[in-house]
Computed example of a mutant assay.
Amino acid sequence: MQETPFSLEQFELLFKEHFKQLALLAYSVVKDKDVAKDIVQEFFVKFWETQHTIQLRGAFDSYAARAVKNRSLNYLASQEVKDRHQQLFAAMTPDDPDMDHADREQFYQRLSHAIDCMPEQRRRVFLMSAADNMKYADIARELNISVNTVKFHIKAAYVFLRNESFVPLWACITWALQSFF
Rank of each mutant, 00 (worst) to 15 (best):
K37S: 12
D38T: 09
K31P: 00
A26M: 02
E17A: 12
S28Y: 00
Q21H: 02
V40Y: 05
L13I: 14
G58F: 03
F15K: 08
L22M: 07
R57A: 04
A65E: 14
E9Y: 11
A59H: 14
A59L: 13
F19P: 04
R66G: 12
L56Q: 05
D38P: 03
S62H: 11
A64H: 09
L24T: 02
V40N: 02
K20S: 11
K37A: 15
S28W: 00
W48I: 05
A26V: 05
T53V: 05
A65Q: 14
K33V: 01
A23Q: 11
L25A: 06
F19E: 01
Q55N: 15
A26Y: 02
V35S: 03
T50F: 06
L14C: 03
D34W: 03
Q41N: 11
L25Y: 02
K31F: 07
Q41P: 00
V40D: 04
Q55P: 00
E12W: 01
Q41S: 12
V35P: 01
E42C: 08
A64I: 04
Q51P: 10
A64W: 02
Y63W: 05
I39D: 03
A64V: 07
V45F: 12
A65D: 08
V45N: 09
R57F: 06
V35T: 13
A26L: 03
S7F: 08
S28N: 09
F44R: 04
L13F: 12
V45C: 11
K31D: 07
F60V: 09
Q21R: 12
A65Y: 06
Q55M: 10
L13E: 13
E12T: 09
E9N: 12
K46C: 09
L25Q: 09
S7R: 07
Q51E: 11
A59W: 02
V29Y: 00
A64C: 06
Q51C: 08
R66L: 13
K46N: 15
K16T: 06
T50K: 15
D61E: 15
K37L: 02
D34L: 10
D61A: 13
L8P: 03
V35K: 10
H18A: 05
R57P: 00
S28E: 00
Y27A: 01
